[in-house]
Design a protein around this nucleic acid. Structure first.
Length: 460
DNA sequence: TTCGACACATACTC
DNA sequence: GGAGTATGTGTCGA
């Protein structure tokens, strides 16, 4: 597909969409050590900051993409992972990720996301299901991969002869089954039904090794309430990237996915109507590619100049795409509306509620995903810092799920030490690559683009 | 007001 | 340069 790459400033803008909150829902252990997961997410396209209210916005009918991966700390090579649940330990057979959405954050009403094929209306529309994703090796982050006996290993050797990604032993992580379930009918992750995902697969160190997954061609099935011009009681959605562990019993061929952690995005306004409806506030409809349909809306694309520098076919080859997209920033939106994606913060923050109070929040930095340096610093802190606080300020603690540990980015940003570390290693850590959308040298990338999982998996 | 479907326009790839 | 593809979005009816 050619397209998606072309959004110039739009795509770059989307990359700044903040994911402020990491929630750890269940404890995991590996070789007797507590393991802390860290979920990373990045919106690759489709979102923009509304010029009128500085709220993150997208159109229901337009595609957006979310790339995600996760890490485990410490990353113990070949150690068995266990999930602590109900006072017992269950061995984790595989791990996976899923994209979902909800009103009012993770505790709100679930919002259905649908994933299209290139055939769009003519093709199937699927709910997004759990996709197996291997933990990202922590190489190069100041945290070494550790053997079960505590022996440090050279990160570069993490892909050994078997092709296994360094990290815990996950027996069914690379089984051929669909991510959703091993039972019944399933579609291979890299479906042959449509010829996409090829380049994404080419990033894989070994077939089936996915340390990163991009949910592409995703749409909200519904728009936020009252996203029209009146702005009364504006509702907000939140995207949620969920990390699951498959704790099926030995011998079972049915996945038993248990959610162990999730990262919750900033609030989003989903517009249900055509961009022309919002024209007076500036065109943020992605002017990149399709022009106005018949009849014209009066803001047709400033074709050509916007896309010149972008990597054509960007979403097929995710590596190296994002950074280059900036050359399109001189296009329509950037000039006409003056939206600066990298300006400090989306300004929207995470609202405790789904309704707009009218205030413009400024409490979340754009780079809301904890950087590797930040995490390393935290990890290095004797005794992992545990903050049993609310997800959102002002939200009663009881709204949190039991056992949840919540990271609030505020605690990072308030620590000057973190900034110092972050700045120093900003170019060196794999997270920087991640931020640029590129793949780490050994990071497998898989797109959900052609993936149509069966929905028979059980969740708990 | 929102959503689904259809259709058109346009950028991109081959 | 043309065909095919992918995607944004205008329009209309429910």
């Amino acid at each position: 597909m050619a397209s998606a790459s072309g959004y110039g400033s739009t795509q770059q803008e989307s990359l700044n969409f903040p994911w402020p909150n990491l929630e750890i829902l269940l404890d995991m252990t590996c070789e007797g050590q507590a393991v802390t997961p860290e979920v990373h997410a990045k919106v690759e396209k489709g979102f923009f900051l509304s010029t009128t209210d500085q709220k993150w916005t997208c159109y229901r009918r337009n595609y957006f993409s979310v790339a995600c991966h996760f890490e485990l700390h410490p990353n113990i090579n070949n150690g068995r992972l266990y999930l602590k649940r109900n006072n017992c330990q269950e061995q984790i057979q595989a791990m996976g990720m899923r994209l979902s959405a909800a009103v009012d954050g993770s505790g709100g009403k679930s919002i259905e996301l649908i994933q299209h094929t290139p055939k769009r209306d003519n093709g199937p529309k699927n709910k997004i299901d759990v996709t197996k994703v291997s933990p990202t090796p922590s190489a190069g982050r100041g945290e070494h991969t550790v053997s079960p006996h505590g022996i440090y290993q050279v990160p570069m050797s993490t892909f050994h002869a078997t092709g296994a990604v360094a990290g815990p032993y996950l027996p069914l992580q690379h089984s051929g089954e669909s991510s959703g379930s091993s039972s019944s009918t399933h579609t291979p992750q890299l479906s042959s039904q449509y010829p996409y995902s090829a380049s994404a697969a080419s990033h894989l160190p070994v077939p089936g090794q996915h340390t990163m997954h991009t949910f592409e061609r995703v749409q909200f099935k519904q728009a936020t309430a009252n996203n029209g011009k009146r702005r009364a009681s504006q509702q907000y959605f939140h995207l949620i990237v969920e990390l699951f562990a498959d704790v099926r019993k030995d011998g079972s061929d049915t996945a038993n996915w248990v959610k162990v952690a999730q990262r919750v995005s900033d609030k989003i306004v989903v517009r249900g109507r055509s961009p022309s409806h919002y024209q007076n506030e500036g065109n943020h409809g992605q002017p990149g590619r399709g022009g106005s349909a018949s009849g014209g809306s009066g803001y047709s694309t400033s074709s050509g100049t916007m896309y010149g520098g972008t990597n054509a076919g960007g979403f097929r080859s995710s590596a190296g795409t994002y950074g280059g997209s900036s050359s399109g920033a001189g296009g329509y939106r950037a000039n006409q509306y003056g939206v600066h994606p990298s300006s400090d913060g989306d300004g929207s923050g995470s609202s405790p509620g789904s309704v707009d109070e009218g205030a413009v929040d400024t409490d979340h930095p754009i780079d809301a995903v904890m950087s590797d340096a930040e995490r390393a610093d935290i990890q290095g802190y004797e005794g992992y810092q545990y903050y049993p606080s609310t997800i959102y300020e002002g939200v009663p603690q009881q709204t949190l799920p039991p056992l949840s540990k919540v990271e609030s980015m505020a605690r990072y940003s308030s620590d000057p030490r973190q900034y110092a570390v972050k700045a120093e290693y900003a170019d060196a850590v794999p997270g920087a690559q991640w931020s640029n959308g590129g793949c780490g040298r050994f990071q497998g990338v898989e797109s959900s683009r052609g993936y149509y999982p069966d929905l028979s998996a059980s969740y708990s």
